[in-house]
Design a protein around this nucleic acid. Structure first.
Length: 272
DNA sequence: ACGTCTACCTGTCGGC
DNA sequence: TGCCGACAGGTAGACG
């Protein structure tokens, strides 16, 4: 589920409730992608200082420097409620605070909750230090983006998903941004000139920005921490629309597989 | 260094 | 009704 807009929607919906809260207890369900990295008790008695986001990781920072990295994987979502109901089959992490309980529900368990003593902790660095630029930051520079694209032979879709050129773009928004930029997902990075690179740079920001404003995309079960669904799926131009007419030119949308993932594109609007 | 593939796990849906 | 395969929003790590 969650790409950058969904993670950001989650962060925004949680920040007010969590910042300043005091942790009081932890409940673990089934194992997630990685072990927590500390005894659960270590998470009790900490004051939340901030809730940040880097790429698709949420970073729950505590006073004193410790932090919890949260990743939602493919199927994770967070909720925050004053008085939680009994945990269900897929509720794998509860963090109880004096203001309510933060709960991670993740049926596929590709998500993760990792405790680190600080952001310079090796475990944190291994996950965060090598990430590409944030799409909405100045560090995501159009000229550098073009230079990186131009130096690679792989398909532009794969390059977007790799997180090396820019982070936060997943399978849905890669398809949507490439449609907006008029570029086929199979186009080799090195075949993309400055003008198309600039168009793609703009398209990535536009698509992600719009999706953030709409609270993300809800395909099956994503919702923010207060249970609100996203609305971006109603505006998708190509994702999940195989065989349906292109909203611009009516040509049927095609689906292909790249790197074991579906890609959707309009063969007329998007040029090789 | 780069590009590609595997593995992790559960649920849902369509076809027979 | 049940079985079976395809597919689903991510990504670290292994391999050539």
């Amino acid at each position: 589920m969650p790409e950058l807009p969904e993670v950001e929607a989650t962060r925004r919906s949680l920040a007010t409730s969590l910042v300043g809260a005091l942790t009081q207890g932890v409940r673990m369900g089934q194992a997630l992608r990685w072990p927590l990295g500390c005894a659960p008790d270590r998470l009790v008695g900490l004051r939340v200082r901030a809730l940040e986001r880097r790429s698709k990781y949420l970073i729950l920072q505590f006073e004193g420097g410790a932090a919890v990295l949260l990743h939602l994987g493919m199927s994770g979502s967070l909720s925050f409620v004053a008085t939680p109901i009994a945990p269900g089959k897929h509720d794998h992490f509860d963090l109880q605070t004096d203001r309510g309980t933060l709960r991670l529900n993740d049926p596929r368990r590709f998500g993760a909750v990792v405790f680190v003593s600080g952001l310079d902790d090796p475990r944190a660095r291994r996950l965060l230090a090598r990430l590409g630029p944030e799409p909405m930051d100045d560090s995501f520079d159009p000229k550098e983006f073009h230079a990186q694209l131009h130096s690679r032979g792989a398909a532009v879709k794969s390059l977007l998903l790799s997180g090396a050129l820019v982070v936060g773009v997943g399978n849905i928004y890669a398809a949507e941004a490439l449609f907006l930029a008029g570029i086929r997902p199979t186009t080799a990075g090195r075949r993309i000139g400055p003008a198309r690179a600039l168009a793609l740079h703009l398209a990535i920001r536009k698509v992600l920005g719009r999706a953030i404003d709409l609270g993300g995309t809800t395909l099956r079960n994503f919702s923010d921490a207060h249970g609100h669904s996203g609305a971006y799926q109603d505006f998708a131009m190509v994702y999940g629309r195989e065989g349906l007419p292109c909203k611009v030119c009516s040509t049927p949308i095609r689906r292909i597989v790249q790197g074991q993932r579906s890609s959707f594109y309009c063969p007329k609007c998007q040029k090789p």
